[in-house]
Computed example of a mutant assay.
Amino acid sequence: MPHSMTAFSRQTRDADWGSLQLELRSVNQRYLEPHFRLPDTLRDLEPHFRDAMRQRLARGKVECSLRFDPAEDSAAPGINADQLAALSQALEQIRAQLPEAPMPNALELLAHPGVMATQRLDIDQVKAAGLALFDAALEDLDAGRAREGERLAELIRERLSGIREQVATVREHLPTILERQRTQLLERLESAKTELDPQRLEAEMVMLAHKADVAEELDRLETHVTEVERQLKQKGPIGRRLDFLMQELNREANTLSSKAVVADTTRCAVELKVLIEQMREQIQNIE
Rank of each mutant, 00 (worst) to 15 (best):
R56Y: 00
A143C: 05
Q93H: 04
L98R: 09
A58S: 14
A117S: 12
A106N: 06
L185Y: 05
M246G: 06
H173W: 13
E227T: 08
F36V: 11
L87E: 06
F8C: 01
K211Q: 13
A101P: 00
L121C: 02
R151W: 00
R157D: 10
A132L: 11
H112G: 00
P99W: 11
Q166T: 00
M246S: 15
E92K: 09
N285Q: 05
S258G: 01
Q247M: 12
L110D: 03
R240N: 12
L121I: 09
Q83E: 15
T183V: 14
D197P: 02
L138F: 14
Q231G: 15
M103S: 05
L20F: 12
R280W: 00
H173Q: 09
A263Q: 10
V225W: 08
A153H: 08
G162N: 09
R188N: 12
L141V: 02
R180Q: 11
Q89E: 15
Y31E: 03
G130S: 06
A253G: 04
G78P: 04
S161N: 10
A15Q: 14
L107S: 14
S26R: 03
Q29E: 08
N254T: 13
D140N: 07
P2S: 15
F134P: 03
E172T: 07
L152F: 11
A101Y: 03
E72Q: 02
A263K: 05
E217D: 04
V228A: 01
A106C: 08
G130R: 03
P198R: 10
M53T: 13
L208Q: 06
L42Y: 03
N80M: 02
R182L: 04
T255Q: 11
L91E: 09
S19A: 10
L256R: 08
M279Y: 05
A90Q: 13
Q184K: 13
M246K: 00
I276L: 12
Q181F: 03
G144N: 01
P47T: 13
K61P: 02
L152S: 04
Q284M: 13
A85D: 06
P77W: 10
R267Q: 00
R251V: 11
D243M: 03
A263E: 15
R157F: 00
L152E: 07
L178T: 02
L32S: 12
L272E: 03
R151Q: 05
V27Q: 05
A71V: 07
E252P: 07
A52V: 01
A143L: 06
R43C: 11
E46H: 02
H112A: 14
L32N: 12
